[in-house]
C-alpha cells in the first residue's frame, strides 16, 4: 500500500516544522505538517493571513529549508541534497507562479517564458523559442510575444508567468496567490486557465488563494490555520 502511494505521489511532506529565529525569540510557523500531493491533482491551499501558506509553499518549492521533517520529491528525500543539487531539482521539477508576476523586466514575454529552458540548457535555441511561442499562444498572448512586461496588463503578465511555469514540463506547479491583485473577471479567467492547463498537461497544481469562491472550484482544498492543517 505505501509503495503504490509513493509511486503516484509527486511530493510528500512528513512532520514538517518551521520556526524562524534561533536565539531567544523564535516564532513557530508550521507545526508538523503531513501532506501528500498526487500526480495530476489540483489542490487549493487556503487559510487566514499569517497562517503559514507562503512558508509552506516555499518549503515545498525547495526555496526554504524546514526546521525539521522530511520532503520527498517523486519519492526522493531532499534533506541530504546540497544547495547546488536543490537548485538543479528546482529547475527540473518545479514551476512557480508568484502573486506579483515576477517577470524579468529586461526580457520580452517570449524570452521570459524561455528563461527556464535557457537556464537548463545554458543557451537559447530556436526549439525553445517555438515551445515558448506555442505556450504563449495557449494562454492567448501570441500577439504580445515581443512586449516587455511593463507593456502588459496585470492579467497578461500573470498569463506569461503561467506559460513560463509550464515551459519546462515541470511535474509540479506552485502558485502563491496568482490572482491576488487581479479584478474578479481577470482572476476568474486566470483560474480557468490554470484548471484547463492542469487537465491538458497532467501536471500537479498547488494554488494558494484567499478567495473561497475560487477554492470551491478545486477538487481538493487544504486549509491551514495557525500552522496546522485543519482539513
Amino acid at each position: 500500500m505505501p509503495e503504490t502511494m509513493c509511486s503516484s505521489a509527486i511530493i510528500q511532506l512528513t512532520d514538517v516544522r518551521k520556526q524562524y529565529g534561533n536565539d531567544g525569540i523564535t516564532t513557530e510557523v508550521l507545526y508538523g505538517i503531513d501532506l501528500t500531493l498526487q500526480r495530476g491533482e489540483f489542490t487549493a491551499l487556503i487559510g487566514p493571513s499569517g497562517s503559514g501558506k507562503s512558508t509552506l509553499l516555499n518549503i515545498i518549492g525547495l526555496l526554504e529549508q524546514p526546521t525539521s521533517g522530511t520532503i520527498q520529491v517523486q519519492g526522493r528525500d531532499t534533506g541530504t541534497l546540497s544547495e547546488e543539487e536543490l537548485t538543479l531539482l528546482r529547475g527540473r521539477s518545479l514551476g512557480f507562479v508568484f502573486q506579483f508576476h515576477h517577470l524579468i523586466p529586461a526580457f520580452t514575454a517570449l524570452e521570459n517564458v524561455m528563461m527556464p529552458l535557457m537556464l537548463e540548457q545554458g543557451r537559447s535555441t530556436s526549439a525553445q523559442r517555438e515551445r515558448a511561442a506555442g505556450l504563449l499562444e495557449r494562454v492567448g498572448l501570441v500577439d504580445r510575444m515581443n512586449f516587455k512586461p511593463d507593456k502588459l496588463s496585470g492579467g497578461q503578465q500573470q498569463r506569461v508567468a503561467i506559460a513560463r511555469a509550464l515551459v519546462a514540463n515541470a511535474p509540479l506547479i506552485l502558485a502563491d496567490e496568482p490572482t491576488g491583485n487581479l479584478d474578479t473577471a481577470a482572476a476568474d479567467e486566470i483560474f480557468k486557465l490554470l484548471l484547463e492547463v492542469n487537465e491538458e498537461s497532467g501536471a500537479t497544481f498547488l494554488i494558494v488563494t484567499h478567495d473561497p469562491r475560487l477554492a470551491k472550484r478545486c477538487r481538493r482544498v487544504v486549509e491551514l490555520v495557525d500552522g496546522r492543517i485543519v482539513s
Binding site: G61, L63, E83, E84, T87, L88, R90, G91, R92, F96, H102, L103, I104, M115, P116, L119, E120, R164
Partner: peptide, 9 residues
C-alpha cells in the same frame, strides 16, 4: 526569480 527557476549561485 532566476534562482527560483533553477539558476545556480
Amino acid at each position: 526569480i532566476l534562482r527560483a527557476m533553477g539558476c545556480s549561485r
